[in-house]
Amino acid sequence: MGAGWMDLEDQYAFYGAYHSNKVNVLIHTLLVWPIIFTVIALAAYTPALGSLPLRDDSLPLQQYMVLNCSFVISAFYALYYTAIDQKAGILAGAMCMLCWVGGNAFAQSTEFSFGWKIVIIAQIICWTGQFIGHGIYERRAPAFCDNFFQAFLTGPYFVLLKVLHSAFGYEPYPGFWNNVSVKLSANLVQYHSSKRTSKSS
């Protein structure tokens, strides 16, 4: 099931088709961002690729703004989210950059020999929770089984957008949710149709 990379409706409908159960959505809301953060924290152990221009270590948090692999990952996500939604995407981008700063703070305060173990434990807990959500509640394999990269790219923004919509009624632009509902329904119909076909064959 493909989707245009810069089409927010297609991206949301793709990911939403794998997350229609409320319990599964809640599990992902709690666990997706910790997965991203711990990946970024692990990447913060890599050597610096350069230095910030006009660097001043006396400024708060500047010591944690290291241009290593964690910055590359965070900046990529931040730029992508800002590009697909100039409103909430800015918030998502800011969260990504906070993960960069927090990840480097973690790496600088924790020896790698212990830090990677914390990351692995957190990843195991978070992934186990998500597999439970899909296996018991959603009863559908995770999105990454069909498109690994797209699922990882869409997941963090999906849960943030879901929270913003539920809590504040946020809509990226007028008609967004109506359009997504149509595409999401079509994706689910296609999935259930293919499932019935595979059972009958």
Rank of each mutant, 00 (worst) to 15 (best):
G50P: 11
V25T: 08
S109G: 10
M65P: 06
L161W: 04
S193Q: 11
V66Q: 04
V23D: 04
F152I: 07
P34C: 12
K117H: 11
L164I: 06
R140W: 03
S74T: 03
D10L: 13
P47V: 07
G169M: 08
A186D: 12
F76L: 13
W116A: 00
T154D: 11
C69E: 07
L153C: 12
L153W: 02
V72M: 13
Y170R: 07
Q123L: 15
S58N: 12
N21W: 04
V159A: 09
V119K: 00
F112C: 08
N104A: 09
A151L: 09
W100S: 08
A143D: 02
D56P: 10
T154R: 06
Y64L: 10
K22C: 08
Y191C: 07
C96R: 00
Q123D: 07
F176Y: 13
G115K: 01
T128A: 13
I132K: 04
L59W: 07
G4I: 03
I27R: 01
I136L: 15
C99H: 05
D146S: 15
A78W: 00
S181R: 13
W116E: 00
M1H: 06
A94D: 01
A141S: 12
N104L: 08
N178W: 03
P174W: 03
I73Y: 02
G89C: 09
P156M: 07
L160R: 01
H165P: 05
L52A: 06
F71G: 00
E9D: 11
V23T: 14
T46S: 15
L30G: 04
V119D: 00
I136A: 13
T38F: 10
G155K: 01
G115T: 04
V189Q: 14
L164P: 05
G93C: 08
F112E: 02
K183D: 02
P174S: 13
V23R: 15
Y81K: 07
E111V: 13
Y137L: 10
K195W: 05
Y81F: 15
F106V: 03
I118Y: 03
H165F: 13
N187E: 06
I132T: 03
S58C: 09
V189F: 14
Y191N: 03
L31I: 05
G16R: 01
V25C: 10
Y157I: 09
P174Y: 06
A41S: 11
G103R: 01
I35A: 14
N179L: 10
N147Y: 11
N21A: 13
L91Y: 03
Y81V: 05
A141T: 14
I118F: 05
V23M: 11
G103F: 02
